[in-house]
Write a protein that binds this DNA or RNA. Structure first.
Length: 489
RNA sequence: GGUCGCGUGGCCGAGGGGCUUAGGCACCGGUCUGCAAAACCGGUUACGGCGGUUCGAAUCCGCCCGCGACCUCCA
């Protein structure tokens, strides 16, 4: 098996060979959701992308520890009136405990991810459960002289850090540029520099979520949880840190600075970022009225959707684009993807009834090699699908007796298909609706009668039976010497 | 305004100096069929604009246009 996986490292802006720090173990950390609202496409893309990576790494034989956090402390809202915690605000508005909000949406997120066949990470740490680790990290950074305390809040001293290290190396920024581009700020006198960021923030008395600390009763800074929890569970350094491109700055930049300041060395060896999602070419946002939650996709209950789309269609569609390209959703594009997915799955079912011979028209070794090449090239799933659909055409031809395969190659074909479609891409056949519970023998019996009608040239009856069955969701396909049927819907 | 990225055929989406007319969907023609459906075979449509480098550019460079991400616990 070709294990020569190359991934794009955002830090180097280039593809490089992936070599674990401590093989065969691989540490993978991905920024998870802030649970204050329903999951939407912006959550689905990184989840599916890094699920693919997780699955592929495991397939390659690595022992992967996959950590994806749940942010339940809540980042402050960027445009909120009083810098209010997102979760706390929602809790106040709905008169619930903040933890009820977090719990509710965490469950909803899990449900959606399960529907899309996204494997659960091995560890899903919550920020609220790691306040102590975060405080320890603040202390360490203070000890090392890269932070300062003001009125109960602790800020990271970016200027000091930048004298010895390179602040901005991930996002391609430099400190002078940041100084020039920082907006006019009020009430920021606590900070030495406007680009300093909070490690610990003193909370106002009315702030719902706060914890005691050496500095004040408050809450951890925005970027701290990922630094603290990733190294807590994956060690230092660890292999891969993933997340959406929108998190590169400031979130991941600050993570690098924090880890380096606390431990003298960067924590992350490979940074991976998935690109963003647009809808009908526009960025997705609540204010633009094109904000679609996953549940709305699954139910079709949104003005931009012509119909409902299954979770697997969303997954397939996501994987049809490369993870580093922007992905544009539209009802039309999803309808096309739905058909492609159906074609792919149908071919998978046909493999079991293929008859072999003693000659073959396709070298499965070549196909397998192409599959691995595509995946090893920074998880190029669009290329993988192109090769898979070539294989689908071959399978269909085999089914129709228009191509040949050796007996002994059939199990190999089965396993090749299953490995890549089911195991690595995580695509699965979704359960059909209840209307499909028609007994097979009954359908067979009816179709036998229809076959007799056809023999008697009673096409009127034959067509009536076919039409009626279609209404029940049974698609009849005539073949040379009989018929074939499948349940639709 | 700054930094970074993108712009491919009717739609989605790979590739990335001459070979891939990637692949999916749609459309057209053919095979098969009583008719359909499915499948298979074949076909059509392309590299945002203008310059430059080169024997040769969709691919490299410059400019322009359009789109996107980010620009901080901060009103």
């Amino acid at each position: 098996m070709n294990k020569d996986l190359h991934i794009h490292n955002s830090l180097k802006r280039t593809k490089e060979q992936f070599e674990p720090y401590n093989p065969p173990y691989v540490g993978l950390y991905v920024c998870g959701p802030t649970v204050y609202g329903e999951a939407h496409l912006g959550h689905a893309r990184p989840a599916v992308t890094f699920d693919l990576l997780f699955r592929y790494l495991k397939h390659l034989g690595y022992k992967v520890r996959y950590v994806r956090n749940i942010t339940d402390v809540g980042h402050l809202e960027s445009d909120a009136d009083e810098g209010e915690d997102k979760i706390a605000k929602k809790a106040r508005l709905e008169k619930l405990e903040p933890m009820e909000i977090a719990e509710h949406y965490a469950r909803s997120y899990h449900r959606n991810m399960d529907q899309m066949n996204v494997l659960r990470p091995g560890i899903e740490p919550r920020a609220s459960g790691h306040i102590i680790e975060q405080q320890q990290m603040v202390k360490k950074i203070l000890e090392n002289g890269y932070a300062y305390e003001r009125n109960g809040s602790v800020y990271f001293d970016v200027e000091k850090y930048n004298r010895e290290h390179n602040y901005g190396k991930l996002s391609g920024r430099n400190i002078e540029e940041l100084r020039a581009n920082t907006r006019e700020l009020e009430g920021q006198q606590e900070k030495k520099n406007p680009f300093d960021f909070a490690l610990w923030k003193k909370a106002a008395p009315e702030h719902i979520m706060q914890w005691p600390s050496d500095w004040s009763s408050g809450f951890p800074g925005w970027h701290l949880e990922c630094s603290a929890m990733s190294t807590r569970y994956l060690g230092h350094p660890f292999d891969i840190h993933g997340g959406g491109m929108d998190l590169v700055f400031p979130h991941h930049e600050c993570e690098i600075a924090q880890s380096t300041a606390a431990k003298g060395q960067e924590s992350v060896r490979y940074w991976m970022h998935n690109n963003m999602v647009t809808i009908n070419g526009q960025k997705m946002g609540k204010s633009l009225h094109n904000f679609i939650t996953l549940n709305q996709f699954f139910s079709g209950d949104h003005e931009l959707l012509n119909k409902a789309f299954s979770p697997m269609t969303i997954r397939f569609f996501t994987l049809q684009a490369h993870y580093r390209s922007p992905l544009d959703f539209s009802s039309e594009a999803l309808e096309a993807a739905e058909k492609g997915l159906e074609k792919l799955l149908k071919a998978g079912e046909l493999i079991d009834r293929i008859k072999g011979g003693d000659q073959t028209d396709l070298d499965l070794g070549d196909v397998e090699e192409k599959f691995y090449q595509a995946m090893n090239d920074d998880l190029n799933t669009p290329i993988l699908f192109a090769h898979l659909f070539d294989l689908v055409r071959y399978i269909n031809s085999l089914d129709q007796g228009q191509a040949r395969i050796r007996h002994e190659d059939i199990p190999r074909l089965r396993s090749l298909y299953d490995t890549f479609v089911y195991d690595i891409l995580g695509i699965r056949r979704e359960s059909k609706s209840d209307s499909s519970q028609l007994p097979g023998e009954l359908i067979e019996m009816i179709l036998q009668i229809r076959l007799e009608a056809k023999k008697n040239k009673d096409f009127e009856t034959a067509d009536k039976i076919r039409d009626r069955l279609r209404e029940l969701g049974v698609i009849v396909k005539d073949t040379k010497d009989g018929y074939d049927w499948e349940v639709k819907r």
